Computed example of a mutant assay.
Amino acid sequence: MSAANEKSLSEGKAWSICRMPSTAAISFLPSRRRLGLDPANKLYFPYEPGKQVKSAIRIKNVSKSHVAFKFQTTAPKSCYMRPPGGILAPAESLIATVFKFVEHPENNEKVVVQNCKVKFKIMSLKVNGEMDYVPELFDEQKDQVAVEQILRVVFLDTERPSPALEKLNRQLAEAEAELEAHRKHPEDSGPRVVGEGLVIDEWKERRERYLARQQVDGVDSV
């Protein structure tokens, strides 16, 4: 899948998982990771059919430059991320929360679906120092965008305690604490991220600001 064919969540589109990664796609992965992820390649969700559940993942900039990151998913209508993107300084990190609606199983069978088809992708882009995050950064510099990881969804049985479930609950609590700290002290917010709310609404607002700024810059340069 080429970067040119990818559609952002701001357009309400999903990226396809119908095709297996080609040699070209594999070479698109960065030779040296810009981001460290925990969990590394999965998103764990509590299995609660008919409810919106949450997962969490810590994202850390392990490079020596500022790095922008962005989420994409194969199921934008049932999933959204907080934040869907942002910019991290070297060694800076945050815990992103991922929300997903869990469908009821067929025939109302109580099963924990381990082979969920929904997947998420985290992309990265090296940027020049501190700046405001806008998703258009990834469109403007497509040749510099790297796919950091494709994350598959794994459901956890909430009635069976496990290390993965305990870790998920701990990370979710940390994510809420970080969000609360950001609300109280927005001027010391650290990572430059998109705010709260639905992803599509946030990105529309950011896009409007971005286009308005571009128009002003164009007028000033005349």
Rank of each mutant, 00 (worst) to 15 (best):
H182P: 05
R170Y: 03
K54T: 03
E166L: 08
N5P: 08
V145E: 00
A164R: 15
N41L: 07
E205T: 03
M1P: 06
N107I: 03
K100Y: 02
C116R: 12
E180H: 04
I150D: 07
F71Q: 01
E205H: 06
W203P: 01
E178I: 12
A4D: 13
N115W: 11
A164D: 11
L179S: 15
V193N: 04
A177E: 12
E106K: 14
A91K: 03
V102D: 04
E174N: 00
E92R: 08
V112F: 10
R152H: 12
N169R: 13
A164M: 11
K204G: 04
A68V: 03
P46C: 12
I200L: 12
L137V: 08
P30Q: 05
E202S: 13
Y44T: 07
S63F: 06
K42G: 06
E136F: 11
E11H: 13
S10Y: 08
E106Y: 14
M131L: 05
A75I: 14
V153Y: 13
L168N: 06
R192T: 04
I59A: 06
S221C: 12
S65E: 06
S221K: 14
T73W: 03
M123E: 03
N61A: 09
K184Y: 11
L94S: 04
P39M: 07
N115R: 11
M1A: 10
L172M: 05
I122S: 00
A146M: 15
F120A: 00
Y44L: 06
K60A: 10
I200F: 07
P191C: 01
P90Y: 06
Y210P: 01
T74W: 01
R32Q: 15
P90L: 04
L35R: 00
W203F: 14
V118I: 13
P186M: 02
I87S: 07
E166C: 02
R152M: 14
F101Y: 10
S78K: 09
K184D: 13
A68D: 08
F120Q: 00
F120N: 09
R206F: 10
A14D: 00
I26Q: 03
E130S: 07
G190E: 04
E103S: 03
A24I: 09
V145H: 01
N5M: 06
V153A: 09
S189I: 15
D217R: 15
S162T: 15
G197E: 08
E208F: 05
N61G: 11
